[in-house]
């Protein structure tokens, strides 16, 4: 039987995954990786897509949440002029520039805060569900 506890749990798991991606973005503020052509690409921020989880639906229509996918952004990197850097672009209009990841740290921190608050809210809901079930045993006196 799907209950309120399962739904709150799905939210806890989803918010934790969201927090994980924020940590990943913050940890990789200046990371780069080599793509399939051998060129150095800057790290692009990851973000999660939430979706209602139809498998976690109660009889009365309450539905859980799941992370449907983790998407990668595609924004223009931050260019800094540094011709002596080993990863500087060799030719083209951006010759001598190094492409750094373009991650907005403030936005990521705010996202982390929101995820934490949502996590706490769902924890509170779980506490109440547990409390209700326990208290209902008092019917039997």
């Amino acid at each position: 039987m799907i209950s309120a506890l399962d739904i709150s749990t799905s939210a806890l798991v989803a918010q934790r995954i969201r927090l994980d991606t924020v940590s990943s973005n913050l940890a990789n503020l200046t990371s780069m990786s080599r793509d399939e052509n051998g060129k150095m690409q800057p790290y692009q921020a990851r973000f999660v897509m939430f979706q209602t989880d139809e498998e976690l639906e109660t009889k009365h229509g309450a539905v859980g949440v799941k992370v449907s996918s983790v998407e990668t952004e595609n924004v223009e990197p931050n260019y800094k002029y540094d011709p002596n850097h080993p990863y500087a672009i060799k030719d083209g209009p951006k010759k001598g520039y190094v492409a750094y990841p373009n991650i907005n740290m403030t936005a990521e921190m705010v996202d982390a805060l929101v995820a934490t608050r949502a996590y706490e809210a769902n924890l509170g809901a779980m506490e109440l569900s547990k409390n209700m079930a326990q208290q209902s045993l008092r019917i039997l006196g």
Binding site: M1, K59, A133, S136, L137, I139, L140, G141
Partner: peptide, 18 residues
């Protein structure tokens, strides 16, 4: 046995029978 019944209802029925 995993039926689709509300625990609060079951408790109330039990108490009424008692």
């Amino acid at each position: 046995t995993g039926g689709d019944v509300n625990p609060a209802e079951v408790l109330t029925t039990l108490q009424k029978a008692d």
